[in-house]
Design a protein around this nucleic acid. Structure first.
Lengths: 343, 343
DNA sequence: TAATTTTCCGTGAACGGGCACGAAATTTCG
DNA sequence: CGAAATTTCGTGCCCGTTCACGGAAAATTA
């Protein structure tokens, strides 16, 4: 029948040895033009494709993919990314590819010792990151962005959410079916950040959000309410003060993954007839969905970002395959209490 | 460093040969209790896991997974299932596993000739299917259901949507934020079926839908409107007549994948201020979303069902792995015009 | 033309595991 | 106890690649 074509079949047909075929397949040189042509012809005619498994088995080199992420505690957004790294690592572990999870901070230093074959990371601290990727480029180490990306020219691939559009979607869902006079006030809960060091990862999302409102509800007033994650009491007080002062606000959103920070307040003061939308399916956020305290979570398969990233890099290292697309925008899922179960 | 543990390492530690270890690993017998114990201990201690790739390479047997589906034309629901079969087949093709796509009708006959190692199928024609799976059971050929399932005891796994819940979700989305008096009438578009042969695959979904309404909007009146897919003109006329007679109907759903059948009518008579919900992301349905003629599509990664099915079966055949869950309910996605792009 | 360099290519030992074969060890039985 | 039957186990080849090694052929130089 249609037995698999092997390298030997190709060699025979081209009238050379398997070593030569191998050299041609991997562009390793040391082959005369004539032989190369014959081999390529034979490959073409027989539709030869190397057996990945035999190849992996025989290959000696071990690849290490460094996966960078910030330090995080349980239940945080980064835990999902971390899971994806693990899943991807598992998937490629049999391929002589090892993943190494590293805290972002230590990465640069560590790179000097153990030179990895590839790097996956979210570009978190912009200036540090630029220096770092510069170094990677110099060393010819491919790197993949997850979560968000910088606009340098050298990243190998990017996997993440379309941030601007997610803000747009958020605004659309928030205001759907509402008449203009019902969308007069919106509260955007925001996180107090140390602006010197941390860039705000939600800027693009926020502009998508604002743009949608500006077009569809130009008269809508947007209140920014700043809270501090480490200070639950202060958060509660801030919210309390805000909603006392603006009792008409029925529409609430949180652009980052931490809508759960206002869960406590919502439990005590549910927003009747309003709508609350957050992002990302952290367990604590899902809980709020289930309790009906928030209406919608806009999420994505966060783990997939990091998993795909690892796999795409392994593909590149092992068989030189490029990803189908360089920029991979993940689908945005809409989660309600009725469809969160099998997510 | 942490070199991979091989069968030789285990053999050495247990003081036997690799042949014996192999026999233990695959429960092939011909091993004394004493040796087996030693080997198992060594495996345990070294955390040995056989290298899948080496294993596949060495194994000679070829597996064939038969994938059954009904005949379909382009753009239909089954095309997605078909894609998944192809994707899954591709993924396992390097593992000596071949997939063969077969029309449901011919399957029984063909089975008599080429005995496949496994079967994946949607249980479409109930009585035929029961006879068929009986035969499979007798021959000890594992089979996996996709799309929907029969409640026999022998299927190896099932991948599909939670039908009842999808109806529930549909009703929830349809009526969200509406006051009781706004949900007085609902139109359910249905397909005329030859009841003798074809079972209605949406019964469970419809009961989920009805149950939600019964609880939350007990006074709501549900109109069933039957159309015939092969007769666009008749469909148009039927719809026209219906909506003329019931101008108050603003909420419309279609439980099957064919909401696009009413696209033509909707284009001419958009339902202002109403809501139209359909199922499944067929291209034609997506187009309606984009044009704003329908509001929501409840979908799933249909291709994944069939892909997972193929892969799970390959796993079972190659390394005897059971799926984590026997029944795998896929997540239901909510698609709107704002998040359909990267799906 | 012989010697030397360079280019090209074939050979064969891995890689980790499956499995057939036959030998060794053990049990059974006369 | 010895022979035969049975159980248990080790050996070695094979799967399709990769790649180091070294030899043959071609090109260059003297």
């Amino acid at each position: 029948m249609n037995r698999k074509i092997t390298i030997i079949d190709v060699a025979k047909r081209a009238g050379v040895s398997k070593g030569t075929v191998d050299r041609v397949v991997h562009n390793r040189g040391e082959v005369s033009k004539k032989s190369e042509a014959k081999v390529r012809k034979a490959i073409e005619e027989l539709h030869y494709e190397p057996n990945l498994y035999a190849s992996v088995l025989a290959k000696k080199t071990d690849y290490v993919i460094a996966c960078l992420l910030p330090e995080f505690s349980e239940g945080e957004y980064w835990e999902k990314i971390w899971r994806g790294f693990e899943a991807g690592g598992e998937q490629v572990s049999a391929l002589n590819v090892t993943t190494r999870l590293t805290s972002f901070r230590k990465a640069c230093a560590e790179l000097l010792e153990a030179a990895p074959s590839g790097v996956v990371m979210p570009p978190l601290f912009k200036s540090d990151c630029i220096a770092f990727t510069e170094e990677l480029r110099r060393r010819d180490i491919p790197y993949v962005y997850v979560d968000s990306k910088l606009e340098d020219d050298n990243y190998f691939a990017y996997y993440g959410m379309p941030m601007y559009k997610s803000g747009f979607l958020c605004a659309a869902l928030l205001t759907e079916r509402l008449r203009e006079e019902e969308v007069d006030q919106v509260a955007v809960i925001r996180i107090n950040r140390d602006k010197a060091r941390q860039s705000d990862p939600t800027v693009n999302r926020r502009s998508g959000f604002m743009d949608y409102l500006a077009v569809n509800f130009p008269k809508c007033e947007v209140h920014n309410v700043f809270i501090t994650p480490s200070d639950p009491k202060g958060t509660y007080a801030t919210l309390d003060a805000f909603f006392k002062e603006h009792p008409g606000v029925k529409l609430v959103v949180m652009m980052s993954s931490r809508i759960h920070l206002i869960g406590r307040y919502l439990a005590d003061h549910p927003i009747a007839g309003g709508r609350v939308i957050g992002f990302d399916n952290l367990e604590k956020n899902i809980a709020l969905l289930q309790e009906g305290l928030i209406n919608i979570l806009i999420t994505q398969r966060t783990e997939n970002q990091s998993r795909y990233a690892v796999i795409s890099l392994a593909d590149r290292l092992l068989i030189g395959r490029m990803p189908a697309r360089r920029d991979n925008y993940m689908h945005m899922d809409i989660l309600t209490r009725y469809n969160q179960e099998n997510y």
